[in-house]
Amino acid sequence: MRTPHLLASACSASDPEARYHQAELAIWDELSRSLAEYPQIWRSPEEGAMVLGEEVDELWDEIRGNHVGRARAEAAQVGAMALRFIADLYEPTGSARRRCRTAAGEQHDALALAGPRDRQFSSSHEAFGFLKREYDALWSAIRFDEPARPIAARVAAMAVRFIAEITGASTAVAVAVR
């Protein structure tokens, strides 16, 4: 787990808004690590979607294994790659940090559009289903040459919700989705 301090904070925060904020920080931490390790810019939407798809597959593996903590860490990687998709493919100018801040703003705005409204996810399987549906929509948009940017923001928003709402706790926590 590359961002354990942030993921632990998101898991233990009692304030719902703090949980989402900590989840966004976990994704930002993962994104910063990715940019440092792999500074080259993705050259095509297909390349970006395949890298993102690899992270989605790794998330599913952790969910199937009932490894909630590792699944949350994978969700941070999914969110980071979704932001990177926007930053690398749709923000052609400026520093990587500025491009990624723009993408993070889009992800934040998409929180209200992602997943079930007015309720928390009931399980990691349900949360993954919503995230996978958004990823599939992204791939479809690329395939049919349609706008993929807003869908990538929803994939990142689903990753935020996964981290903030799937805690492994046996009791449900009431959370107001923005």
Rank of each mutant, 00 (worst) to 15 (best):
D15I: 12
E46Q: 15
M158T: 03
E126L: 07
G79M: 02
F144Y: 09
I151Q: 00
C11T: 13
P45C: 09
P4G: 05
E17Y: 09
R43I: 04
A10V: 10
F85R: 05
I142A: 04
V173A: 07
Q22Y: 15
I86T: 12
T167A: 03
G94F: 13
H108S: 14
E58M: 11
A137S: 14
A80L: 05
P92S: 14
Y20D: 00
A137M: 14
E54V: 07
E55W: 05
R33C: 04
Y90P: 01
A159L: 05
A104G: 09
E30A: 14
A36K: 10
G94Y: 12
F128L: 08
P150T: 06
P16F: 10
V177G: 00
R70C: 03
A127M: 05
W139P: 02
A172G: 11
V155C: 13
A18T: 12
R154C: 13
P4D: 09
I63C: 12
M158P: 01
A87R: 03
L89F: 03
V51D: 08
H125M: 12
A169L: 11
P45M: 12
R101M: 15
L138P: 00
S14V: 13
T171H: 06
A13I: 05
D88Q: 06
E106G: 14
W139Y: 15
V68N: 04
R143G: 12
A87D: 03
M158H: 15
E165P: 05
P150Q: 04
A96N: 06
G115W: 02
A8N: 10
Q40P: 00
L111Y: 04
E134S: 14
R117T: 07
D29R: 01
E47V: 13
G115D: 01
Q107V: 05
P147K: 00
G115T: 03
Y90A: 08
L6P: 01
V173I: 10
A156P: 02
C11M: 07
A82L: 08
S95K: 10
Q22N: 11
R117V: 07
Q107A: 15
V51C: 08
F121R: 02
S170I: 06
A103H: 01
G94M: 12
L138N: 02
E134G: 02
W42F: 12
R72I: 03
S12C: 08
A141V: 01
F85I: 10
A76L: 08
E74W: 01
R33E: 10
E55K: 13
H108A: 13
R119I: 06
I166G: 00
G129L: 11
A8Y: 05
A159E: 01
S95H: 12
D136S: 15
L6Q: 03
R119D: 11
A152R: 00
R161L: 04
L7R: 11
R72N: 10
I151P: 00
G94Q: 14
N66G: 10
A112L: 11
V68H: 03
D57T: 13
R64G: 07
E54F: 11
D109A: 15
N66R: 15
R64H: 08
Q22E: 14
S170Q: 06
E91C: 13
D15A: 10
Y38A: 10
Q77F: 09
A13C: 05
S32T: 14
Y90K: 07
G53I: 13
A26D: 06
D61P: 00
F162Y: 15
S123T: 06
G69P: 01
W42G: 02
M158Y: 04
R2K: 11
S95N: 09
A164H: 00
R19I: 06
